[in-house]
Write a protein that binds this DNA or RNA. Structure first.
Length: 422
RNA sequence: GGAGAGAUGGCCGAGUAGGUCGAAGGCGCUCGCCUGCUAAGCGAGUAUACUGGGUAAACCGGUAUCGAGGGUUCGAAUCCCUCUCUCUCCGCCA
């Protein structure tokens, strides 16, 4: 959410900046609402001040019957206030409606672009494997090794659900532990295990609601949602709090399953593990001082990259352009792994700085010193990494001519010493 | 699921026959004083949001907030209703 005051004073600049996202932006209604709100507010508050003053005078009277006419007068004032406050509530709802659906302003370093084709490659790492045979896709490998069962996954639930079996299940679990150990042990993140369902306030705090409800699984009977990413519960840990400046930055990591409806992606990535309704992810979340958030973004990105470096999987880092930027983000790097089976790079992590956009929605603040005014923190998060897609990358990059798959060395301790899936 | 108790400022905790309560007191914190150091002591200060004024930081004024929402009243932390959450006991249960 943007600051209403800032928006009021910089409406045109904000509009033109948001247009680079390729979204139709019309904030004229905001300005009108905002002006009306302040008018109503002043009228109501002036009357309240009067009522408070008169009520106090009445309280000092010994003989209340002397105040009959003033009480009658105040009765009318109160009626008027009630009426004004009702209008205020409506207009504030409308104003919130605007504010909650306006996306974040892209950071100056976010490249301007019209589509994902304009994303900018930041760096490449690793050597793309050179196969002496035609590399297979992970679903072919997984089915041949009997470690991924798409058919039975669909039987259990439906399309886009997969059953992992034997070494496949073990591989997924090994990756989760490997990633968590890396981030807690070497990158100084504190491990969290949050609820996998959250309420509406939490979803609004990080920006999934109100705009993207159709992407979420919602429970029947209670107003809870399955989390689409650990970003939601972990960022909301400090919703409504004022943190100590000396405690920043806070770094949290969490493994959670993620649930997404994938509405609007019919026909896309229908085969394999790439796009599932349920997938596992290890997430990195930071709460930082506003002055340091862009340095922290680089560090967070490198923490996520480290996973792929240790596993020895080739990847590249892309800076998303304005058109490809998520709703809440000011700047985003995607990490894309090389997938030989598909002869392309695919996203495996998305690392973003939300600046104070989420912090304002969720009211997450800090005090520089005990006397200082509270300020909004900056929130950041990134996948470290998407686990299912890491399995995909391992199967496709480490496949052998005989159909087996080598286990990356760093992962072997987590696989009970297993060197090869066969 | 059944029965009961509760929710007040950073924390603890007063305040329920409605008015001078944004809220006693304590702790914590900040600044100053004092003490050879530390501890103790003394004094002052110490919520947030919105909004008006001020070029603006400072500052001054107004309004709101005692779990949330609604009601009664000239006036609600205090009375009434609904909801949420927490705790205790019983039942059930991984």
């Amino acid at each position: 959410m943007l600051d209403a005051k800032f928006l009021r004073e910089n409406l045109e600049e904000v509009e033109s900046s948001l247009r680079t996202r390729g979204e139709a932006v019309n904030l004229a209604g905001f300005r009108e609402c905002d002006t009306r709100r302040r008018g109503l507010l002043q009228e109501s508050e002036t009357l309240k001040a009067l009522r408070n003053k008169v009520s106090e005078e009445i309280s000092r009277l010994k003989d209340k019957s002397q105040a009959k006419d003033r009480m009658a007068e105040m009765r009318e004032v109160s009626q008027r206030i009630k009426c004004l406050d009702e209008q205020l509530r409506d207009i504030e709802g409308e104003l919130q409606g605007y504010l909650l659906t306006v996306p974040n302003i892209p950071h100056a370093t976010t490249p301007v672009g019209a589509s994902e084709a304009d994303n900018v490659e930041v760096r490449k790492w690793g050597t793309v494997p050179d196969f002496s045979f035609a590399p297979k896709s992970h679903w072919e490998i997984g089915e041949a090794l009997d470690i991924l069962d798409f058919e039975r996954g669909a039987r259990l639930t439906g399309a886009r659900f997969t059953l992992y079996k034997g070494a496949g299940a073990r591989l997924e679990r090994a990756l989760i532990n490997f990633m968590l150990d890396l981030h807690t042990g070497r990158h100084n993140y504190v491990e969290m295990l949050p609820p996998f369902m959250v309420n509406r306030e939490s979803m609004t705090g990080t920006g999934q609601l109100p705009k993207f409800e159709e992407d979420l699984f919602r429970l029947d009977g209670v107003d809870y949602f399955l989390i689409p990413t650990a970003e939601v519960p972990v960022t909301n840990i400090h919703r409504g709090e004022i943190l100590k400046g000396s405690d920043l930055p806070l770094r949290y990591t969490a493994y959670t399953p993620c649930f997404r409806k994938e509405a609007g992606s019919y026909g896309k990535d229908t085969r394999g593990l790439i796009r599932q309704h349920q997938f596992n992810k290890v997430e990195l979340v930071k709460f930082t001082h506003p002055d340091r958030s862009y340095q922290e973004l680089e560090l967070l990105l490198s923490d996520a990259e480290q996973v792929l470096r240790l596993l020895d999987i080739p990847y590249r880092v892309m800076a998303l352009c304005t058109a490809d930027l998520g709703f809440s983000a000011a700047k985003t790097y995607d990490i894309e792994v090389w997938l030989p089976g598909q002869n392309t790079y695919r996203e495996i992590s998305s690392c973003s700085n939300f600046e104070d956009f989420q912090a304002r929605r969720a009211s997450i603040r800090f005090r520089e010193s005990d006397k200082a005014k509270p300020e909004f923190v900056h929130t950041l998060n990134g996948s470290g990494l998407a686990v299912g897609r890491t399995v995909v990358a391992i199967l496709e990059n480490f496949q052998q001519a005989d159909g087996t798959v080598l286990v990356p060395e760093a992962l072997r301790p987590y696989m009970g010493g297993m060197e090869r899936i066969c």
